[in-house]
Every structure is written in structure tokens, then in C-alpha cells.
Design a protein around this nucleic acid. Structure first.
Lengths: 99, 99
DNA sequence: ACAAGGCATCGACGTCCGTCGATAACTCTG
DNA sequence: CAGAGTTATCGACGGACGTCGATGCCTTGT
């Protein structure tokens, strides 16, 4: 595995390696509409609005969330297959796919 | 996803979310014998011996590496299926397996 | 035009993490 | 037993990260 690819994968994993962000993704996934806005998440996560907004930005930058601003509200939804892609890449580190 | 499970998964992912540790796993996996000792890794990683030892300890504690001390040398080998297990768990966050 | 409310950004603080040099512990060799 | 070599641990330093309060932006409704 090249240092470049290791750095990229590490940055992606670092975006997921936080309890608040994992719960955030889970909450959005569990939503009936498949999306949620910031004000829907501050309660369950027990975090302030700036903190939740920050976490959402991290996940958007990492390619796990999609932001759709409609009027005043910002609707966040999962990027389909993003997490599956990471999960599929992980075993490659331990196998002889060291290209 | 329960806060407890989120915290556990986050701790596991945090162990992987580092370029040096990903390369370390890859180097061990690419070894012909399937194992490597500290002195084999300091060169390719361009890190000092204490740092490599520290990273190995983190990966052992997280369940990704196995340590086998034979005489003076400490042989590290991958725990079979450990990374595959994490990869299989990741999509569960984005699906309605919110149990 | 003004007020209200949701969100993003900013600055700051405390904590955790990666890295290193120095040192100790342990094992084999002579 | 003394010496050399490998690894683990310790202490310290710099940087990154999660969190918050305060503030500004922007849209909606009156």
C-alpha cells in the first residue's frame, strides 16, 4: 500500500472514528424520510448546534453526507454506498492487494 | 445505534485511522512469512523504534495484531478476519440495522 | 422594512495523539 | 559474568481535535 493511499484512507477513516459522527449517521439513516436537519440532531446527540454543524461538515467533506439547503433548513442525507465502499476497501489492507 | 456501540466502533476505527498504522498492517500482510518484527518495520516506515512499537501496541490492543515474542524478537502477525469484521460492520451504520 | 429563527463561521479552551530521545528490561553470545 | 542487540516504557513536546459561546448570514413571515 502506497503512502499516498494510506494517507487518503486514514483521512476517510478519521472522519468516521468519532462516536458523535457515527450516531449522527445512524440517526439520519433511521429517519423516515432519509434526511434530517441540524435542529433534529442536537437533541438526540446532546450536543450544541455549532458542534453538530461541525460534525456534519466533516462528514460532507469526507463524502459520507450530502447537504441540501432548502430555504432556511439544511437537509442532510446519506451518500448511497459511501460507507459500503470503505467497508469493502478495509480487507484489502490485510490481503495481498498491496498495489 | 446505541451510544455504547458507537463508542466501541469509534475506538476501533480510531486505531485504524492513521497512515503509519495502515502501512504497518500492509507491510506485515505483504511479508512472505506473514509476520514481521519491529526492526523490519522502522526502515520502510521511516519512524523510530519507539514509535513503531507504540503503533504495534495500539493495533494489538484493538485486536488487529497478534504479538508473539520468541527470544529477543517480537513477531507481529495479523489477526485473521479482524479487518474484514470491521468492514462488514460499517455498512450497518448506514442501513436500518440500528439495533 | 423589520423581526425571528435556523444555520455556518469564528475564536478559544482543554484534551488527546503522534513523535522523539533517553532509559530500563530481557535474551542470547562469548 | 560481561557485552551486545532487540524491544518496551517513560517523559516531554508540538500539533490536531472536539466542544462551546458569541456572532454574522440568510430566508421567511409579518
Amino acid at each position: 500500500m502506497s503512502p499516498q493511499r494510506a494517507a487518503d484512507l486514514a483521512r476517510t477513516l478519521k472522519a468516521l472514528a468519532d462516536p458523535a459522527r457515527l450516531r449522527l449517521l445512524s440517526l439520519i439513516a433511521a429517519s423516515p424520510t432519509g434526511e434530517a436537519c441540524i435542529c433534529d440532531l442536537t437533541g438526540p446527540l446532546e450536543l450544541t448546534q455549532p458542534t453538530v454543524s461541525h460534525h456534519c461538515k466533516v462528514l460532507v467533506d469526507a463524502g459520507f453526507l450530502r447537504r441540501d439547503k432548502r430555504g432556511v433548513w439544511a437537509h442532510y442525507s446519506l451518500v448511497p454506498g459511501a460507507m459500503q465502499a470503505v467497508g469493502a476497501d478495509l480487507p484489502g489492507v490485510g490481503k495481498l492487494v498491496t498495489a
